[in-house]
């Protein structure tokens, strides 16, 4: 058993709380987040603990439902992106004919500035939550595909793969039983980095007005807030700005802390300090 840094546990607890809020959103939210229920831009009261926005919707309920879209985007993008980079990395490392094509594509995608490209594509196909997930997933696989390819190339010439081949192992058998497991070591880092990227990107896109018409998200709440030119002359402005800001920051920091906790664990295992 290894000791992990305190921040790792803080991050894990925070992530668990966020997940709980996302799952239990309909129970936790006292109001319908889409219904205008009270005076617009009213300061906190007993019925609306965080006040209301410019449409008279309850801020707290929107904050709770916003957790959902952040986590949905984060999880879906991570699954999609990890799967894609595995396939591309294994293909580039194993199939010679695909190698130069895939590496060229990876180089091009890594060189391009991602936000202008995402903005262009989302404006062309329309910004719905599904499209946001699709675009972020399809654009975030290259970096890890490179890592997978490097590991696969290293493992391909290793004695155990050679032995497996000599014993009559097919390519599919070698990929599934030897090459894929060799890449598992790098997966936790990839997962954490992609979750962070997805939360970051979803919030930024929503802040720029690309979250899809009916989606409630933290970035979208801030986008709506900043559309008001007289924002800072209203008493309610801290209640409009701080809750979503704190939520986004907390989710991202929790991911970072969990990630750095995992990597310290991995390096200590690698250096053999805690192994018998």
């Amino acid at each position: 058993m290894t000791r992990r840094p305190l921040l790792f546990w803080v991050g894990s607890v925070l992530l668990a709380i966020f997940a709980g809020i996302a799952v239990l959103a309909p129970v936790l939210a006292l109001h319908d987040p889409r219904q205008p229920l009270a005076l617009p831009l009213s300061t906190p009261s007993r019925h609306h603990l965080l006040g209301t926005n410019d449409l008279g919707q309850d801020n707290l309920s929107r904050l709770i439902y916003g957790t959902r879209s952040s986590l949905i985007v984060a999880v879906s993008v991570t699954v999609l992106s990890t799967a894609l980079s595995w396939i591309a990395g294994l293909a580039a490392g194993f199939v010679h004919r695909l190698e130069s094509l895939l590496i060229g594509l990876v180089d091009l995608l890594l060189a391009l500035p991602d936000l202008p490209l995402i903005l262009l594509v989302l404006t062309l196909i329309g910004a719905t939550q599904a499209n946001v997930i699709l675009v972020l997933g399809l654009l975030s696989w290259p970096a890890f595909a490179r890592v997978v390819r490097a590991i696969v190339i290293g493992a391909r010439v290793s004695p155990y793969v050679e032995a497996s081949r000599a014993l009559g192992g097919t390519s599919a058998h070698i990929i599934v039983h030897h090459l894929l497991p060799a890449t598992l070591d790098a997966v936790p880092t990839k997962l954490v980095l992609t979750v962070r990227y997805a939360v970051f990107a979803e919030a930024t896109l929503a802040f720029l007005g690309l979250s899809g018409g009916n989606t409630i998200s933290w970035g979208e709440m801030l986008n709506q807030t900043f559309r008001d030119p007289l924002l800072f002359s209203r008493d309610v402005w801290p209640w409009l700005i701080f809750p979503p800001t704190v939520a986004i920051t907390a989710l991202i920091l929790a991911t970072v802390w969990v990630g750095s906790g995992l990597t310290t664990h991995r390096t200590t295992v690698r250096s053999g300090k805690f192994l018998p």
Binding site: R196, F200, A203, T204, F207, I241, T249, I252, T255
Partner: peptide, 9 residues
Amino acid sequence: AIPEFLIAM
């Protein structure tokens, strides 16, 4: 780890 728009705000 903090998005630019949060630093900006």
